[in-house]
Design a protein around this nucleic acid. Structure first.
Length: 237
DNA sequence: CGTCCAGGTCTAC
DNA sequence: GGTAGACCTGGACGC
């Protein structure tokens, strides 16, 4: 994939016929949240001293090809160093033969594969239960997207009911599903935000208060505040 | 070598 | 409703 001006080009290693062609285009569009209209958010930022820079097009969080993949990656980011997250995800991709495994592939591999080979520790049970729920139809993933009209309250409850998904994981997953209100509060975002403010620490309640004015975009505003320097570096590159 | 803990969550009080 | 303790793993760190 590469950007050329205001278009995104997708190249595949072999030519695709319909309906695969459309499927790839749809998937990529979802990954980049191309259907997301951020105009209301940008309007909100017009005179914002800290975030007006974002109006030039920031705020589209890169998602995975599937909701399942986003949920699993989120699960793999809990209570461990980022290097461990990368290692677990790489091991899952190996299971998938170079692509992220489907729920069925995970189930066929079995719980012991997840603990002994992927070395996911106690997270293995959460992944196994998620794969089971999706595979048997108890949990439908695509209906969770904001873009298809899902309701925020309901999606929050659905994801929160999954084993291994607490406040952090739910907020993280919600952002990727197109719900930008919840704040991702974890051991990286908390101290990073405090540092930006020039403080030693700031309570979760205070952080929520700080971003309350952004309403439905509070979580996105929080994330952009934390990652402004990432964007600046890329723009210079 | 042992301890601590990282982009948390669950359970049992 | 709020809060210790346990939980897999593997780097980082102190000794």
């Amino acid at each position: 994939m590469q950007q050329r001006g205001d278009t995104l080009r997708v190249e595949t290693d072999r030519s695709l016929a319909e309906p695969a062609r459309t499927a790839v285009a749809d998937t990529v569009a979802r990954m980049f949240a191309l259907d997301l209209d951020l105009a209301p958010f940008y309007t909100m930022l017009a005179d914002d001293p800290r975030l007006s820079w974002a109006r030039s097009g920031a705020g589209r969080l890169l998602a995975s090809p599937s909701v399942f993949e986003d949920l699993v990656k989120t699960l793999c980011s809990t209570n461990c160093a980022f290097s461990a997250t990368q290692r677990m995800v790489a091991a899952l991709v190996a299971l998938g033969g170079g692509a992220f495994p489907t729920p069925k592939i995970v189930l066929d591999a079995g719980l012991s594969y997840l603990t002994d080979t992927v070395r996911m520790g106690y997270r293995a049970r959460s992944l196994y239960e998620l794969a089971t729920s999706i595979h048997d139809g108890a949990f439908t993933t695509d209906a969770l997207r904001a873009a298809v009209g899902a309701r925020e309250e309901e999606v929050t409850a659905r994801i929160g009911s999954l084993r291994g998904f607490g406040p952090y994981s739910v907020a993280h997953a919600m952002q990727l599903l197109g719900f930008h209100r919840p704040l991702i509060l974890d051991s990286w975002t908390r101290p990073t935000y405090a540092r930006i403010l020039g403080k030693k620490a700031r309570s979760d309640a205070a952080i929520r208060r700080d971003f309350k004015p952004y309403g439905a975009y509070a979580g996105l505003a929080f994330w952009l505040t934390l990652t402004e320097d990432w964007v600046a570096k890329r723009a210079l590159a």
